[in-house]
Amino acid sequence: MLLAHASASKLYKLKYKSKQRGSIGLSIYAFGLTPYSNSKEDEIATQRAKDFLFGWMLKPLVFGDYPYAMKRVLGPRLPVFSEEESEQVKGSSDFVGIIHYTTVYVRNSTSTTPSLIPRRQDFFTDTRDFFRASRGLFMGNSTFFEWDSIPWGLESVLEYVKQSYNNPPIYILENGTPMKHGSTLQDTPRIEYIQAYIGAVLNAIKNGSDTRGYFVWSMIDVYELLSGYMYSYGMYHVNFSDSGLKRSPKLSASWYTGFLNGTMDVSPRDITQMQSHFSGPSSL
């Protein structure tokens, strides 16, 4: 993927960039990562998780090679860049796209149980880390859909990328929170989530992060990769049972519109005021 990205980036810059003045970047799925305890093992595991989650893509893009921790753990299973490939990959992204929803605890996971079963070769075995979130687990095929609001986690991601990878331009391509589809149009928790995370982005920018854009996931309810139509992130409700797919604005749509045009303060009291004057039905 990195070589394909670098090749496409080179072609674009040679043939199209001067006319179109576009930019090419690569995105990563970026959990906030914090140690589960104060133990040295969990601190090392957290850094190892960062190397696998962020460094796998970002270190080649910025420095031309994989993190040392990945080389040590994976050995010959990890591809090796030729000198020419390294130079082609390095600097091939004009920006880094960040997809972020929540923050997880990281705990060092060691298994001492003897087994005759061949060692699994997957992400979690390679990192030897165990990820835990407040409302559920993220390990193997387990998933959870109701993210806790932990805005400082996004701020820490932006700070880490700034310090570790030469402060590249960043666009936050996805950030939002799910609610059970059709539960209500007065999605105050979503407003509080978005408001808090925008504040975290502002803090990171004030601290020097070169973050240039922020996109809420999502404008309308869509089919979600992990939860189908059960949970939705949209600021507009979509009635999937209606042949015309009728769309209705949620409270978050009104709040975000006000935020973008500067007529809405971001203080929590304004959410209550909006809720009392909301013209749509209270539930579906």
Rank of each mutant, 00 (worst) to 15 (best):
W147Q: 09
M139P: 00
D65C: 05
G176H: 07
V157T: 06
A253H: 03
H237Y: 15
F95H: 07
W152Q: 08
S156V: 04
T211K: 10
P249N: 00
Y223K: 10
D242L: 06
I117D: 14
G262R: 05
E155D: 09
G91D: 11
T127F: 03
F124V: 11
D210S: 15
Y105I: 02
I98N: 02
F145L: 11
S27H: 01
L14Y: 09
P249H: 06
Q186A: 13
G258A: 10
Y66I: 08
L226F: 15
A196E: 12
W217M: 06
S282N: 13
F63H: 10
N38K: 11
D148I: 03
E159T: 15
N207P: 01
S109I: 00
T184Q: 03
V106G: 01
Q163L: 12
G55V: 00
S276Q: 13
A8P: 06
T263S: 15
T143A: 01
I24H: 05
G22R: 07
V89K: 00
L154T: 08
S243I: 15
E159H: 15
G32E: 00
A69C: 11
G25K: 03
I198S: 07
L11K: 13
I191Y: 02
G280K: 01
G262K: 05
M179F: 12
F240Q: 00
P189S: 10
H237S: 06
Y236N: 00
P281I: 00
E84G: 07
R269G: 05
T177M: 06
I170A: 03
D187H: 08
K206W: 06
F63L: 10
Y12S: 12
G280C: 03
T211R: 08
N167S: 00
Q273R: 12
A30C: 14
R135D: 10
M179G: 08
G208P: 07
G280E: 02
F63Q: 10
M230Q: 13
S82Q: 09
S115R: 05
